[in-house]
Write a protein that binds this DNA or RNA. Sequence first.
DNA 1: AAGTGGTCTAGACCACGCG
DNA 2: GCGTGGTCTAGACCACTTG
Lengths: 253, 253
Amino acid sequence: MVSADTVWPDHLFADLDRTGPIPLYFQVSSRLEAAIRSGELPPGSRLENEIAITQHLGISRPTVRRAIQELVDIGLLVRRRGIGTQVVQGQITRQVELTSLYEDLKNTAREPGTKVLIHDIVEADEIVAERLRVPVGSNVVHLRRQRTAGGVSIAILENYLPEAFGDITTEQLQLRGLYQILRARGVTIRVANQLIGARRADTDESTRLGIDDGGPLLTMERVAYDNAGEAIEYGHHCYRPDMYSFETTLVAR
Amino acid sequence: MVSADTVWPDHLFADLDRTGPIPLYFQVSSRLEAAIRSGELPPGSRLENEIAITQHLGISRPTVRRAIQELVDIGLLVRRRGIGTQVVQGQITRQVELTSLYEDLKNTAREPGTKVLIHDIVEADEIVAERLRVPVGSNVVHLRRQRTAGGVSIAILENYLPEAFGDITTEQLQLRGLYQILRARGVTIRVANQLIGARRADTDESTRLGIDDGGPLLTMERVAYDNAGEAIEYGHHCYRPDMYSFETTLVAR
DNA sequence: AAGTGGTCTAGACCACGCG
DNA sequence: GCGTGGTCTAGACCACTTG
């Protein structure tokens, strides 16, 4: 018997497509996520148990579990053995996505712009060589860009890429984010390692970002890897701390 | 037929325990992780395919897949359909764990210390009430602590907890990290939402942390939730940026 | 004792990348 | 065409929580 206080928005799952290319578990998890974010499943709601969901949807339990797990992984649901599955109390929302700052800004509806300060080929110093796993002194693409949102400077981005990306043009960089350009070339970033910190701005940085000389900067250093596990990009960026910050959701395994 | 250039450290898996309480997939993934981190499986190595591993270990394919998935999730392995599974090139290592600063510091072998500056019960203002999901004006525990490592001040931590934690003693707080105390009471943090930024230090902060007045501070604001999805802790912390930074590994889904 | 999620099996078929 | 990982099934038994 199912407890009376459980919820399951059955109507959302009437049109599951078993023939198309979209996995069943994804169809279920995305509809469920929408129901949670819209408030249809309020914080604290208890979902029906997995067996019951199985019967409602006509799919197997591992598939149901995978759908639920997707939402547990992003911190929207909490599972407890012997208890059930509940919507988390906090309306925690965004995740630090594996996207570029450019896309972050687009999503916040401030018009992003890019000024390319440096775009050349240099020999890798020890740090760049180590990060990109190329020999010291080999050629790498070097970028320095200034990023604006709604006309206001908010970040200075310095990046290094393997020489294979030497044919990226300055025009492309002015129009799009780096990750967009990479994706258009069939390169997908799969894993990234980031180090977030803070330091004083130097004179050049404070002038460009329109802040006080010596004022605080938020910094991020990142190495990104593609599908094949190859290092694709190393960069160290700095941000106006009153215009940008990093949001993360951590979920215990 | 298995390609000649694949690797599988079969000897590591001779003693899998099928009767004990430790899940098979975890036994496999943790041994595999150790082999990767030790360098026994160097970056770029191709693992044997999943069917072959199934036969080597005498376990089913979903179990093998789950073990591999654990390491994909932390950025150690990369899977490609039609290609296989490989060790990531970069030695991605630590993760921002769901632990307190205290434990972070212990792991880096600098002796952590805590000075309790404030420990009282206050009425929740609007922000605290919203974060902890309690009524405005209801009682909450208020903490302000100064954290040292090897005798050097590195952070000021301000936290709010529901009144149910009013029996935590100042002595406990001096000896242990907050999350340790919570765990000892049977409270496990499951989900946390963090916002990381930077700002200027005020005079009190700069004095306590031994930095210049107005110098840069790394800041973190966090709300943490337990197994049941209940808000357990809200805090805003600041760190000496030359002594502490945040490391994250992001993995695309 | 009853109900829940956690783990595991032994298959099946499909989609993608490559030669 | 072949090998790879991606998805899915229909069960089974176990461990934990609560009444």
